[in-house]
Computed example of a mutant assay.
Amino acid sequence: MTKKTHTLVSFYFLSVLLAFQGVNAQDSKKDFVNSEHEGWMVNVEEAYQLSEKTNKPILANFTGSDWCGWCKKLNREVFSQPEFKEWAAENVILLELDYPRRTALPAAQKQQNVELQQAFRVTGFPTIWMFDLDKPDGKRFQIQAYGKTGYAAGGASAYIKNLEKMIELKEKSVN
Rank of each mutant, 00 (worst) to 15 (best):
V78C: 01
V78Y: 02
S80R: 14
Q81W: 03
Q81Y: 07
Q81N: 10
P82L: 01
P82G: 05
E83I: 13
E83C: 07
F84I: 03
F84E: 03
E86I: 11
E86C: 08
E86F: 04
W87Q: 09
W87G: 10
A88H: 12
A88L: 10
A88T: 09
A88N: 12
A88I: 12
N91D: 08
N91M: 06
N91W: 07
N91S: 11
V92M: 02
V92R: 00
I93Y: 08
L94M: 12
E96W: 02
L97W: 06
L97K: 06
Y99D: 12
Y99T: 11
P100L: 10
R101G: 13
R101L: 14
R102Q: 15
R102K: 15
A104L: 12
L105F: 13
A108F: 05
A108N: 13
K110I: 03
K110Q: 15
Q111L: 05
Q111E: 11
Q111P: 00
Q111Y: 04
Q112W: 05
Q112S: 06
Q112C: 08
N113L: 07
V114M: 12
V114K: 11
V114H: 10
E115M: 08
L116N: 06
L116A: 14
Q117E: 15
Q118Y: 10
Q118F: 08
Q118N: 14
A119R: 04
A119V: 02
A119D: 04
F120D: 08
R121I: 04
R121W: 04
R121E: 14
R121H: 14
V122G: 10
V122Y: 09
V122P: 09
T123I: 09
T123L: 10
G124N: 13
G124W: 14
F125K: 03
P126D: 10
P126N: 05
P126V: 02
M130K: 02
M130F: 01
M130G: 05
D132L: 10
L133S: 03
D134F: 13
K135R: 12
P136F: 01
P136N: 00
P136K: 01
D137T: 03
D137F: 02
G138M: 04
G138Y: 07
K139H: 04
K139C: 02
R140C: 05
F141P: 00
F141M: 02
Q142R: 14
Q142V: 09
Q142K: 15
I143H: 02
I143N: 02
Q144E: 11
A145D: 06
A145K: 07
Y146P: 00
G147P: 01
